[in-house]
Design a protein around this nucleic acid. Structure first.
Lengths: 249, 249
DNA sequence: CGCTTTATTGAGAGATATCAATACTTGTGG
DNA sequence: CCACAAGTATTGATATCTCTCAATAAAGCG
């Protein structure tokens, strides 16, 4: 891990473009300044590098600045599964709070940068800034909801449906960040997608090919174009949130 | 729902036998007294009654006093899944914090009683009592870890393994509360077990019969006796935490 | 340019779902 | 207290989906 101190002007939360997705949502300037004092360091990770490992003592939680990470959770017998993919603005490391050590491995899928939020200092600050405290609880709670949706996917959906709803979920999160929502690069391998969805890599591949044949998507390697959003939503069994408009970058 | 005000002496957190599993873990007497002022009401639920429904505005989170509840999460197309079973001392309603309304349905599996914790008042109190704040974060974080384990089960395990680890998880949670860990009543139906594990009711039934044939368990209706714990642990792919001793009530 | 990794595609095997029939429980009312 | 009905659970036979094994193709990397 390369620790870089924060010289660059854009290193402060107060001027970070991610403000709207990151912790400081809805805080006033004074409070954000206080958070600035909290987030003093960042880490730059190369593809494949660990941000933390299962068992590491919890010192911080992290906010993705750019790039993509995955978190994996392992069983004692060696089996493990990708539990989540993390885009800019999303928080990592929350599963370490319960027992003071991270329960998962966090690994960069591409060159990424992550803000370091000292956890003990953060708890102190949250007591001083009620909005921050509430915001943090919301983040934790939404994380739960996200996992529950994931559970529903693994528990009730067939491979095809899982994959469709995975693609749509990615699309929605990208759209929220102002990226194209109908054309993007998958940062994760087929193996990682399969692991996340509880299906084998071959099945992922087959389903993607099938989607392409039916004209739902175009896919070339990891570059994907969602052609028929409505069709995908129908497949996934979730209603299309108001006839998706394509958000231009 | 029958709201009952708290006349009974045992209604206070300070004297509740669940103290060791409930929110007030590790608090001093003064602080617990403050929590007493927070938890003024309880609800008694009959089997099948809802504690809350998806979409209800979040007003409170809940702690199970006695009984068992399930939470279910639904897809727009009608499919739904049991996401969790909740034993005494466990907290419910946390998924409502994210957007101010519960994301799941909570339903009693038997006659149950639940403590009502006003959420806004709780956040205020958490700011005054750092230990309480931290404890709450730990609870939220552990909830995440629990869901991640569940994800791992649905994503990587076969039906047999899922069922074995489900039984062992129940056993462990009962043991922690001082109940017999090798003989207990399942409060949930086969349908609910299947939904929770992402398998069909018939498969649950078959696997239970298979376990019984192999001498791993004895089962009569919903009463189950775990005979060969080691065997179950091996099946589940998780190591037996120190040659399980049977905890007598 | 060759080697390694990653992805696609096919054929057959296996696990679980589905459909269907039967048995067991529980509750209700005569 | 028994009979009946409704709900719940078990068991069997077949269908279906996904996995596994295997071969090939494409892409990334030194």
């Amino acid at each position: 891990m390369n620790f870089t101190s924060s010289e660059a002007p854009s290193s402060k939360c107060s001027v970070c473009v991610l403000g709207q997705f990151c912790l400081p949502v809805g805080l006033n300037t004074v409070d954000v300044a206080k958070i600035d004092t909290l987030v003093k360091e960042r880490v730059r990770l190369q593809k494949g590098e660990n941000l933390y490992r299962h068992g590491d003592p919890l010192s911080s939680v992290y906010s993705v600045r750019f790039g993509t990470l995955k978190t994996e959770y392992g069983l004692e017998d060696g089996r493990q599964q990708v539990i989540g993919f993390h885009l800019p603005g999303e928080i990592l490391g929350l599963d370490g709070i319960g027992d003071g050590q991270y329960q998962s491995d966090a690994i960069a899928l591409e060159e990424s940068e992550v803000c370091i939020i000292r956890y003990d200092a953060f708890e102190d600050l949250a007591r001083q800034i009620p909005v921050l405290q509430h915001q943090f609880h919301r983040i934790l709670s939404r994380e739960l909801t996200q996992d529950q949706r994931h559970l529903l996917s693994l528990g009730t959906m067939r491979a095809e449906e899982r994959l469709a709803s995975f693609l749509l979920n990615l699309s929605q999160r990208l759209a929220a960040r102002g990226y194209l929502n109908n054309e993007f690069d998958l940062r994760m391998s087929r193996v990682e997608i399969g692991s996340y969805l509880g299906i084998q890599i071959e099945t992922v591949s087959r389903m993607l090919s099938r989607f392409a044949e039916s004209g739902l998507i175009q896919i070339k390697q990891r570059h994907i174009k969602l052609i028929d959003m409505d069709g995908l939503y129908e497949l996934a069994g979730i209603p299309n949130p108001e006839r998706t408009r394509c958000i231009k970058k």
